[in-house]
Design a protein around this nucleic acid. Structure first.
Length: 270
DNA sequence: ATGCCAACCTGACTGC
DNA sequence: TGCAGTCAGGTTGGCA
């Protein structure tokens, strides 16, 4: 269930397997995910040595000594399986290293993507150029939000899901952060007071850091690359808790907007 | 420009 | 046991 904490956890899990390693084999097992795999992907990656792994928003980046960066997005259902005993139906990309390790990119719904970009052009890659600041970076501030949200009548929930405003939040952590900040998700973004925005920034940090620390959360089948499950889902205060009690004594409610569920407490989120 | 929504695809779960 | 209906972490393109 890849939002930022899950991608961060994934990159951290892949690093000891890939960093500094030569890739003996990179094979695609079908032609596409959301988009076609780059035609030259297997050829460019096979034989290359990984020089580093990074994360930007919900994307994972694998740099190689050939000047390429492989950029993956896990979509809704993507995950990397580490040293699988056998390949499964939805293992669409398989990487093997000289050290004998094997990774399989598994993505049943195929909303994910894999791209190959010259490392020096990564910052200018179209999908990255449009992204807002990292929510855990120095540019995600109350001032930034105030400027970005000024005059906007769309809900604060919708705006936080917009990767151009802030890059890496998804449905779960937006719900949780708005809860922690005690902000009503449907509130028009431009009408959220500055002090509330400052609190929101702190709550985004709080929620993301807790999730990363817990190793990423899990809904159905998310697994860390090393196979351990994340446990942050047990700490959700509102997400997936419709009808259950809020800590304030209220009852968690749900509404659907843009086809997506929002969970919140009408009693304590104003 | 902004806001809204359907579409992409499969699997898991619920209720009959 | 089976089948139909509903829902799911994200992104994008099209329409008003």
């Amino acid at each position: 269930m890849p939002e930022l904490p899950e991608v961060e956890t994934t990159v951290r899990g892949l690093t000891p397997v890939l960093d500094g390693q030569r890739l003996s084999s990179v094979v695609t097992r079908r032609g596409d995910l959301r988009r076609p795999f780059p035609a030259e992907l297997a050829q460019r990656m096979t034989g290359a040595t990984v020089t580093g792994l990074r994360r930007r928003a919900k994307y994972g980046l694998i740099d190689t000594d050939r000047g390429d960066t492989m950029i993956f997005h896990l979509g809704m259902s993507g995950r990397w399986r580490v040293d699988p005993d056998e390949l499964l139906t939805h293992d669409h990309l398989v990487i093997e290293t000289d050290a004998g390790r094997r990774l399989a990119l598994n993505d049943a719904r195929r909303f994910g993507s894999v791209d190959l970009v010259p490392t020096v052009e990564v910052a200018d890659w179209p999908a990255f150029r449009a992204l807002g600041p990292e929510p855990l970076g120095p540019d995600f501030t109350a001032k930034h939000l105030e400027q970005a949200l000024a005059g906007r009548i769309a809900s604060i929930k919708q705006m936080l899901l917009d990767q151009r405003i802030v890059a890496g939040l998804g449905n779960i952590y937006v719900c949780e952060a708005l809860y922690e900040a005690r902000i009503r998700p449907s509130k028009p973004a431009g009408q959220v007071a500055r002090v509330k925005l400052a609190r929101l920034v702190e709550c985004v940090h709080l929620v993301l850091n807790a999730a990363i620390e817990a190793g990423g959360s899990t809904l159905r089948d998310y697994a860390r690359p090393d196979g351990e499950l994340g446990y942050f889902s047990k700490q959700f205060k509102v997400y997936g808790r419709e009808g259950l009690p809020c800590e304030c004594g209220g009852v968690v409610a749900r509404y659907v907007e843009g086809g997506r569920s929002t969970f919140w407490c009408p009693k304590c989120q104003k």
